[in-house]
Design a protein around this nucleic acid. Structure first.
Lengths: 202, 202
DNA sequence: CCTACCGATCGGTAGG
DNA sequence: CCTACCGATCGGTAGG
């Protein structure tokens, strides 16, 4: 019987659960993320795992939040210092590709959000809503950068920002499929080429 | 106790199971397709359902095959009479959009293959392999049409067929997400616009 | 954070 | 194609 942990230790345990949950769910999905499997991997009891969240749904939401934080760290933070507009869009183009190509230690099953989105997109409930909210935030962030690029004269004035964002997202969905299902090493180059065309870069 | 069915009746029962399985799996995924749920929906016993396939994996493969047949009926057959190359590509552009927009009676959860692909793309096994094989076949079919269009002078000679196919697939992955997760009514128009640009149509 | 449970459901089998 | 099972695992709870 392990001693009752201090608040700091409990928090650290919770972080370990979420970290492992992110890796598991990126492979098995948020529904395939079972409390028993998580407990076995972490050498804890099921009750010990569940106690940090209360319900499986709360665990799923916490895992989703943790994954979003990791995505922000990998994709958004490295571009925060870039000039808004086209320079930042070009930087995001590359951090996003890197997230899909080399984010494997955190997300061994590929894009967490693509998996979660297709898993829940035909259901209702808080998890589905949280996934939709996250993807919407990122789309809006991209659209704002496109508008800035247009205002700066770096993109044509007749650019439709939502169309550009839609096509960028499309290319990253396809890149994830290309990597995960076909292990195609040329996919990143294809994506970069297509995004460059979208961003009016030669 | 129902009488032992004739071979024809048994075949018809199997078809009913697969049909219901396609609808269920398009919403819940091929792993969420449980024998008990299928049996309850069809008012059969679990053993009665499983007897037609032997194992859950065989049921998943049969459901995938059934879904592929329905996709071919909705997307490929209507364009078979079109002239190969650009005319057929334009027709596929529209049957594919219609499959995602109005295929709801057969696929209430949206694109069956996007769901199956993201569900299995981080695993091994026969189901994953079968999904990959299907998507590859359809990609190759599209690429052949692009090459025909280039040969006919309907697309520029420097066209990269695999790049065009990659971008078309990307747009349909995104369209499915837009419909399923955001219920965006403008998504089909966005897709058509982007595909038209790919196909060098004004 | 643990042990020891709970009812429900999972895939699958025996036997008719 | 049915009834009647099987062991394993699911999410979750009581109590310490």
């Amino acid at each position: 019987m392990s001693p009752r942990n201090s608040r700091i230790e409990a928090r650290r345990t919770r972080e370990r659960i979420v970290e492992r949950g992110i890796a598991l769910a990126s492979v098995e999905g948020l529904e395939g993320l079972t409390i028993g499997r998580l407990a076995a991997d972490l050498q804890m009891s099921k009750a010990g795992v569940l106690g940090h969240f209360g319900t499986k749904e709360a665990l799923q939401l916490a895992t989703l939040q943790g994954a979003a934080a990791a995505f922000s760290r990998l994709v958004w933070e490295p571009v925060a210092h870039e000039k808004p507009g086209l320079p930042r869009l070009r930087a995001v183009r590359d951090t996003w590709i890197a997230y899909l190509e080399t984010g494997r230690d955190i997300f061994p099953g590929g894009c967490f959000f693509t998996t979660a989105s297709t898993e829940f997109d035909a259901r209702g409930g808080p998890v589905r809503d949280a996934v939709a909210r996250l993807l919407r935030v990122w789309r809006h962030r991209l659209a704002a950068e496109v508008r800035t690029a247009v205002a700066a004269g770096d993109l044509p004035t007749d650019t439709d920002p939502d169309q550009v964002v839609y096509e960028m997202v499309a290319l990253y969905l396809a890149l994830n499929q290309e990597i995960q299902l076909f292990a195609d090493p040329t996919a990143a180059a294809r994506t970069r080429r297509a995004v460059n065309r979208l961003l009016d870069q030669p």
